[in-house]
Amino acid sequence: MREEVNEPGSALAPSRMPVEAIVVGASTGALEALAELLAPLPASFRLPILVVVHLSPDRKSILAELLDAKCNVDVREADDKEPIEPGTVYLAPPDYHLLVEPDKRLSLSSEEPVHYSRPSVDVLFETAAEAFGPRLIGVILTGANDDGARGLKAITSAGGIAIVQTPELAHVSTMPLAALKICPEAHTLSLEEMTAFLQEFSPPQ
């Protein structure tokens, strides 16, 4: 079952169980960081990536279009109860929380903002940690608040892998620093290193 052949290189990869999904949280400076992280991924990349970006809640976001134009993988806004497809990037729609159901479908919610944010990184990360357990990678990028720190801790508590953008390299370091404070076991990587790291976990086609 274990796909060790396809997880070479990383010190982590060889001995651990396969990863089923990646979750990413970003705020201020998100567009540039996400483009740098996601654009180099090849079209053959097989893991789904679920993303929460803090946006103004005016409900029309061109972020998905912008990223989709730059990326080899498909990028789109998530729909309610959508099954998660491999090799697809799902963005939380503006003004909705994005959650993962226990049956690994996506769901949306208009519950109250968390950390003044809807969507909230914590909500995605905590529900994804429940659904995927150790088969999950959580990534915290640039941002000016502390959303995502609790969620990242939930991921490592469930046995998943935590990655934080190296704070000195982040456009705004508050979110990475907050995550590292609660979750010091997280790996700190540059965006370039992250892209390479994530590819090591992509199963074969």
């Binding site: 109860k81 959650l99 159901e101 226990p102 769901s107 919610s109 909500v123 905590e126 529900t127 429940e130």
Partner: peptide
């Protein structure tokens, strides 16, 4: 109801 949301609430 959707479990993820109901569990959170």
């Amino acid at each position: 109801y959707s479990l993820a949301s109901i569990k959170r609430r």
